[in-house]
């Protein structure tokens, strides 16, 4: 019993050390592009000054395992970057992404990724914004889910539902359930402006039951092995 308590204390202590190291990484390497403290931008102009998504509620948003892996080997998740309007140019048929303006996200070493993730997961949103158990579980077929997502709600206008298929201004959604916690997805879709008042993502006033279906659909999409397709 004594050994168990000692190991538990050691585990907690090492987690605290990791988070301390992580906080230093966040301040040194992340803070110049990401807000580590709230509030969210209140005006369009203020939003445009932010070079990356806010991280001050990262612990309520991201899945820990995905986040650590992504920091090791970051990959673009928003085809037109952040913010889309700063990375497009007029084209012959339609506006095109101006790839020359897109910067890759820096990658971290395995140790730094673990420490930064530990610190990020401590940054929680207030309980009033997201509650545990908001997603009720369950599943849906991809074909029915696509109807809810695209036909009934038009979300594909801005989001890709598979590589190279869908809108480009928003983040890809075929991996979003791997990246984000299901309860966060329910809360964000219900009221995007509560998280980010001027995000170019509308509140479509989707009925609560359909929000559950949307998240079930995103989970079904995330189960596909997109790397092998």
């Amino acid at each position: 019993m004594k050994y168990l308590l000692l190991s538990l204390a050691a585990l907690l202590a090492s987690s605290a050390v990791l988070a301390d190291e992580g906080e230093a990484i966040l301040e040194e390497q992340c803070a110049s592009c990401h807000a580590l403290k709230g509030p969210a931008a209140q005006t369009v102009e203020e939003l445009w000054q932010r070079k990356g998504p806010d991280l001050f509620y990262a612990g309520s948003k991201y899945n820990r395992e995905w986040l650590e892996k992504w920091l090791l080997k970051p990959r673009r998740l928003r085809p037109a970057g952040y913010h889309y309007m700063q990375h497009i140019k007029p084209g012959k048929k339609r506006d095109m992404i101006d790839v020359s303006t897109l910067q890759p996200h820096p990658s971290l070493s395995a140790k730094a990724a673990r420490e930064a993730t530990e610190a990020l997961m401590k940054l929680k949103a207030p309980a009033s914004l997201v509650s545990a158990g908001a997603f009720k579980g369950g599943s849906i077929s991809i074909s029915f889910g696509e109807m809810v997502f695209d036909k009934f709600n038009g979300c594909m206008a801005c989001h890709q539902i598979e590589p190279d298929y869908g809108g480009l201004s928003g983040p890809e959604v075929y991996t979003v359930a791997k990246r984000y916690q299901a309860d966060y997805l329910v809360s964000f879709i219900s009221d995007p402006q509560a998280w980010n008042p001027k995000a170019p993502m509308p509140n479509k006033h989707v009925a609560a039951a359909n929000i559950q279906k949307l998240v079930q659909y995103l989970q079904a999409l995330a189960k596909e092995n997109w790397d092998e397709k």
Partner: peptide, 14 residues
Amino acid sequence: WQCHGMAGNGMGVN
């Protein structure tokens, strides 16, 4: 812009 385009001509990036 994302849908209606930078020129407003309906030819946005999406």
